[in-house]
Amino acid sequence: MAKMNLKVNHKTYTVDVDPATPLLWVLRDHLHLVGTKFGCAVGACGACTIHLNGNAMKSCQLPVSAAAAQEITTIEGLSEHGDHPVQKAWLDIDVAQCGYCQTGQIMAAAALLKQKPNPTDADIDNYMSGNICRCGTYIRIREAIKTAAKTSKK
């Protein structure tokens, strides 16, 4: 066990956990930030996507010790009122079916748009192919990302 400070959504938390604990479980079990989802724990599905210093990262693959003192953003901190352009676009297009993967999809999409404000279809397909949606909402995710890209420019 080790005490360490985590900066999550601009707040500092002190946790006392095994330093090898994947950040995913610290967020969910210890900080009760359950918007970051558990899907596979092997970095294959993207449900646990967060931002580490602004970059999309699969939190199941990141030991908490490696995240200490870094800027961590989870879905709960993406926007104050759930009104980030990507979240708004998701509602506009009514993307979700079961909704379980969508927070990870949204975090990935927000990171993509930060890197590439005007992504092509191929950019979107490649970047988003790390995130599985079992319900098959891919077409709406693509459309929502394009919508968010447009509204972000305004």
């Binding site: 969910r28 930030l33 918007g35 989802k37 558990f38 759930g82 979700a96 909704g99 969508q102």
Partner: peptide, 15 residues
């Protein structure tokens, strides 16, 4: 439930 889903609110048994 769209707004809760995109905000990552606790909705699922796992949560």
């Amino acid at each position: 439930e769209g707004a809760k889903i995109v905000a990552g609110k606790s909705l699922f048994t796992m949560d």
